[in-house]
Amino acid sequence: MKKFLKVMLVCVMVLFAFTLVFGTSKKDEKEGIVIGFSNASVSNSWRVFMVANYEHEVTLHPEIAASYYTDADDKPEKQIADVDDLLVKGIDVLIISPAVQDAVNPAVEKAFDMGIPVIVFDRKVTTDKYTTFIETSNYEMGKAQGEWLAKELNGKGKIVAFSGVAGSGPAEDRWKGAQDAFSKYPGIEILGQQYTDWSPPKAKGVMEAFIQQFSQIDGIWADSGLMSWPALEALKEAGRPLVPSTGEQLNAYAKFVVKNNLRGFIYPFPAWMSRIAVQYAIKAAQGEKLPKYIEIPVDPIGPDEIADYVQMDKSDFWWVGDDQMPEEFLPSFD
Rank of each mutant, 00 (worst) to 15 (best):
S215F: 00
G264L: 02
I220P: 01
P241F: 13
L232T: 11
Y253P: 00
K202Y: 01
L226C: 01
A209W: 00
L262C: 09
I217N: 07
D218P: 01
M227N: 06
V258L: 07
L250R: 04
L242D: 15
G247S: 03
V257Q: 01
L235M: 15
E233W: 01
Y253L: 03
V258F: 04
N261F: 07
Q213P: 00
S215I: 01
A209F: 01
S228P: 05
G264N: 02
D218T: 01
M227S: 09
K204Y: 04
V243C: 11
E233R: 13
S224G: 04
G219E: 06
I220K: 02
L242G: 14
V206A: 15
V206E: 10
G225R: 11
L242F: 12
E208Q: 15
A203S: 13
S245R: 04
N251E: 02
P201G: 08
P200W: 07
W221P: 01
W221L: 06
Q216V: 14
M207P: 05
R263Y: 00
W229K: 08
M207E: 07
I217W: 04
P241V: 13
G225E: 04
A209H: 08
Q212S: 15
E237V: 07
A234K: 10
P241H: 12
L235N: 12
I211S: 05
N260R: 11
T246I: 06
Q216C: 00
Y253N: 02
I220W: 03
Q213V: 06
S228L: 08
F256P: 05
M227F: 09
A252G: 14
V206I: 15
K202H: 03
W229C: 04
P200I: 06
Y253D: 00
M207D: 08
E248W: 14
L232Y: 09
L235F: 15
P200H: 08
Y267I: 09
L262D: 09
M207Q: 10
L262N: 10
P200F: 06
A222M: 03
T246N: 04
Y253M: 03
A254L: 07
I266L: 12
T246W: 03
R240G: 09
M207G: 08
S245N: 08
F214D: 08
E248P: 00
I217Y: 05
W221G: 02
N260E: 14
S228Q: 07
K255I: 10
V243R: 11
P230S: 13
W229M: 09
K236T: 13
P241K: 12
G239I: 14
V257Y: 00
A234P: 12
P201A: 08
K204S: 13
K236G: 15
D218C: 00
R263T: 11
G219W: 04
E237Q: 15
I220C: 03
M207R: 05
Q212G: 14
A231H: 10
F214L: 08
A222C: 02
G225C: 09
R263P: 00
F265K: 03
